[in-house]
Amino acid sequence: MMMARGRGSASRGGVFLAAVLLVGFLVAMSAPPVAEAAAATYMVGDYGGWRFNVAGWAKGRTFRAGDHLVFNYNRAVHDVAVVNVAAYRSCVVPRGAKVLRSGRDRVKLGRGTHYFVCTVRGHCQAGMKLAVRTL
C-alpha cells in the first residue's frame, strides 16, 4: 500500500524560499540608490560659441571627469588646440599639439585641468583660450 504524500514538507520549503526571496527583495529595494552622475555636455561660449574673450566662460561652472565640451566655430577662421599650461599662458602652441579643425569639435574631459587655445595668430592673445578644471 502506498502512502499518500502530504504537502507539509514541500510546501514549507516553498514558503521558506519565497520568504527568503521576499526579504532579499525588500532589503535590496530599501538600500539607498547608487548615484551615477550622468556626463554633462557643455557648449563652450554658450550660444556665441568658441570666440574671442571666451576665457572667463568656465568660471562658476562645475565640470566632472567624463563631461564633454563642444567647440562650435567657423573652421575657416578658427581652430582649437589642446595644450599644456605653458602654452596656455604664453599662447605659443608646441609642435605636436593636438589641433581640432572640424568647426564642431567634441572633447571628453578627464580628471585635472585642461587647456585650449586657438592657434590663429593673435586669437589666443585676444582671449580665445580656455582653462577647464574637473573634479
Results as ranks from 00 to 15, higher is better:
41 T>W: 05
131 A>D: 06
57 W>C: 01
65 A>H: 00
127 G>S: 02
100 L>P: 14
63 F>I: 11
57 W>A: 00
62 T>I: 06
18 A>S: 12
20 V>S: 11
79 D>N: 15
23 V>E: 06
84 N>R: 11
55 A>N: 11
68 H>E: 12
85 V>P: 00
11 S>D: 01
37 A>R: 15
39 A>E: 14
32 P>V: 05
43 M>H: 13
18 A>R: 06
31 A>D: 00
71 F>G: 12
81 A>L: 05
71 F>N: 12
38 A>G: 03
102 S>V: 02
97 A>G: 01
74 N>I: 01
132 V>W: 07
117 V>T: 15
33 P>Y: 06
51 R>K: 07
79 D>G: 08
45 G>Q: 10
83 V>T: 02
7 R>S: 07
23 V>G: 08
106 R>V: 15
112 G>C: 08
116 F>C: 02
43 M>K: 11
115 Y>A: 10
56 G>Q: 12
73 Y>Q: 10
123 H>S: 14
93 V>I: 14
22 L>N: 03
61 R>S: 04
13 G>S: 06
111 R>E: 09
122 G>K: 12
37 A>T: 11
123 H>E: 15
63 F>R: 09
71 F>L: 11
62 T>M: 01
73 Y>N: 10
65 A>M: 06
77 V>Y: 10
130 L>M: 02
30 S>A: 14
78 H>M: 02
75 R>L: 02
62 T>E: 13
78 H>Q: 07
21 L>V: 09
8 G>A: 14
106 R>W: 06
88 Y>F: 15
84 N>D: 15
127 G>W: 00
119 T>M: 10
102 S>W: 00
43 M>D: 11
92 V>D: 11
119 T>F: 04
58 A>Y: 04
55 A>P: 00
23 V>A: 15
38 A>M: 04
125 Q>M: 06
126 A>L: 05
67 D>C: 09
27 V>E: 08
86 A>G: 08
134 T>C: 06
93 V>N: 07
113 T>E: 13
102 S>Y: 05
58 A>F: 11
64 R>L: 06
12 R>N: 12
49 G>H: 09
85 V>F: 10
132 V>D: 03
51 R>H: 14
114 H>C: 02
74 N>Y: 08
59 K>Y: 09
39 A>F: 00
134 T>P: 02
47 Y>W: 07
53 N>S: 09
95 R>I: 03
12 R>Q: 13
52 F>A: 08
107 V>N: 06
22 L>C: 10
26 L>N: 10
47 Y>M: 13
121 R>T: 10
35 A>F: 09
5 R>G: 05
129 K>Y: 00
37 A>V: 05
135 L>P: 02
31 A>P: 02
128 M>K: 04
73 Y>H: 04
114 H>I: 04
104 R>Q: 12
26 L>H: 04
63 F>P: 12
43 M>Y: 13
91 C>R: 07
25 F>I: 14
108 K>E: 15
11 S>I: 15
60 G>L: 02
50 W>G: 10
14 G>I: 13
93 V>L: 03
103 G>S: 04
128 M>I: 00
52 F>D: 08
99 V>I: 10
13 G>D: 04
12 R>V: 14
73 Y>V: 01
66 G>M: 04
43 M>I: 14
75 R>Y: 02
107 V>Q: 11
91 C>K: 08
53 N>L: 08
42 Y>I: 02
81 A>K: 09
8 G>S: 13
56 G>L: 01
13 G>Q: 10
76 A>E: 09
118 C>D: 15
60 G>V: 03
93 V>G: 03
5 R>A: 12
